[in-house]
Design a protein around this nucleic acid. Structure first.
Lengths: 133, 133
DNA sequence: CTCTCTGCAAAACATTTGCAGTCGG
DNA sequence: CCGACTGCAAATGTTTTGCAGAGAG
């Protein structure tokens, strides 16, 4: 078995580089726009498809903003972590909570659930935005 | 001040009753369909508007499924609680985690965030669905 | 070569909004 | 009565898909 893997296309590289450059969460739409502005034209559909593949492969983290829009970011670490998201400017701070992991698993197991995943996000208004409100 | 409050219309009552009857999380679409099937015709827009008002007033809980669809449920208790959601059949189990509350607040405060809220959901496949897979 | 990936435009969804008519208080 | 509430249809915004052509391996 030759572990086919994804093809190394210009578009895929462009998306990964853009994610790397940003370093923070971006929506597919924002990513598409920034690529377009950078001259690296990539179709919107391709951006979605690529992000979907990356997410499935565990290469990126995906969270949902409060309005349901999906936002993606390159996984910095292997460990599952959570986020503190500013409702106003979108800035995110990475936070850890090892207990949550264990808790989620135990809770799921106790109810007979399998194939478990979880989501933990904190939304608020950051210091800067609070000041300029 | 006469605290105007919302009007007691047939539609509003229908939505609240449907939520009460269900007892579990439903999407606006599902709710609209079930009302339609029950003969209690209520416009889809009205369902959305009513759910929005109820959510704002704190009468219902709102969570986002993994695909970003919003789901609503009558608040059973005053306390903030979390959910274990079956990815296959949508069934939810209510779970508690008092520590998460405190942790989220501390974490937010440590980074200067204000007006904090948080989300904690666990997704998995319930015992029944695992069995019939 | 072959088979996956891409682009574009259309489709599919969830949700919101404009407006004219209805009806609760 | 009057203004908030409703229904419908049209508008929005995001994400998905069909299909023909391009390019990686």
């Amino acid at each position: 078995m030759t572990t086919t893997g994804p093809r190394n296309t210009r578009q895929r590289r462009a998306v990964e580089e853009a994610l790397h450059r940003t370093g923070d969460f971006v929506s597919a739409q924002e990513l598409h726009l920034s690529l377009r502005k950078a001259g690296e034209g990539v179709g919107l559909a391709t951006v979605y498809r690529t992000l979907g593949l990356l997410a499935e492969a565990g290469g990126v983290d995906m969270i949902r903003a409060e309005d349901g829009e999906a936002r993606y970011r390159l996984c910095a670490s292997e460990e599952h972590h959570h986020h503190l998201v500013c409702r106003t400017c979108g800035r995110t701070v990475e936070v850890e909570e090892p207990d949550a992991e264990r808790w989620a698993e135990q809770m799921a197991a106790a109810h007979g659930f399998t194939d478990v995943s979880h989501t933990l996000e904190i939304f608020g208004v950051c210091a800067d935005c609070t000041a300029s409100a």
